[in-house]
Write a protein that binds this DNA or RNA. Structure first.
Length: 265
DNA sequence: CGATTTTGACCCGCGC
DNA sequence: GCGCGGGTCAAAATCG
């Protein structure tokens, strides 16, 4: 009896973990797709603009780290991304029927506008942080066109106050602390970003452009190369993201502690 | 009654 | 200069 119940518990635990991993996998696939689309659009725009100056060697931009080395274009990597120096994009899985744009991220927000944008039929909502007077942080919430199950949340700016743990019930774990926060970004997301949200750091500007550079010499328009490069880049970005590594470490630790050595019978 | 949301109007940057 | 699109304002409505 004990053995069967133990096995049943174990199976349920594995199933729950599998389900969680499937959700995380879906979120990561979506993130990759979105990034791939954005990358494709931006690279096309970039090459249209710079085609006369950089004839062939950067076509395809299959790696971000070669263009700078070969052409010394320190800041060539898409000026729009440099504008987002304090921005972070988060994907939050929600019910597609839910039109409330509510994302519990540990902060209190006040909605100040809503707009339908050109390339996305879903309205974009604009929020300001109302937890502290004068807090400059804003966020934009819009349902993802590629997958209606996800909300794209873009944070801008840095908070001038601490998070209120009682507010972030959905994304933050009850035992999480505010000590590991990255300034400007929700602690709850960073504490456990893979629970129900995926954080995508778009700060490609300073570190990546100066450290790794841009572009590639052997590229063409091949989708395979583009996808490979995007995967490489996203993987590198995730690896650099402390919140991702923290979450990964937490997931590994969880799997170890929650599933200790199998019962010996 | 104060806080928040809604929503049309307005502002501003950008491309043509 | 003009039109377009994204972002913000602000008055009215709604909520707790």
């Amino acid at each position: 009896m004990d053995v069967s119940s133990s096995v049943k518990d174990k199976v349920e635990g594995v199933e729950a973990e599998l389900e969680q991993l499937q959700k995380e996998n879906a979120a990561l696939r979506l993130m990759l797709q979105v990034m791939s689309n954005k990358y494709k659009m931006l690279s096309e725009a970039y090459f249209r603009e710079s085609n006369s100056q950089v004839p062939t060697i950067c076509r395809g931009l299959t790696r971000f780290d070669l263009c700078e080395d070969q052409h010394s274009h320190k800041n060539i990597l898409i000026p729009q991304l440099q504008l987002a120096a304090n921005s972070s994009q988060v994907f939050v899985e929600t019910d597609p029927r839910d039109e409330s744009h509510i994302v519990r991220d540990g902060f209190q927000w006040r909605k100040y506008g809503q707009k339908v944008t050109k390339h996305n039929p879903f309205p974009r909502a604009y929020f300001r942080c109302s937890m502290a007077p004068g807090c400059p942080v804003k966020k934009k919430v819009q349902r993802c066109m590629e997958d209606k199950n996800f909300l794209m949340v873009t944070y801008e700016g840095r908070h001038n106050h601490e998070v209120n743990p009682s507010i972030g019930q959905s994304l933050s774990s009850p035992s999480s602390s505010a000590t590991t926060s990255t300034p400007g970004f929700p602690n709850s997301v960073l504490d456990n970003p893979l629970r129900s949200a995926i954080t995508l750091d778009l700060n490609l500007s300073s570190e990546n452009s100066s450290g790794n550079g841009n572009g590639n010499g052997n590229g063409n328009d091949d989708d395979y190369n583009n996808k490979r490069s995007m995967e490489d880049h996203v993987a590198a970005s995730l690896a650099k993201d402390p919140s991702f590594t923290l979450a990964l470490a937490a997931a590994v630790a969880r799997s170890i502690t929650e599933h200790p050595k199998p019962p010996t019978n």
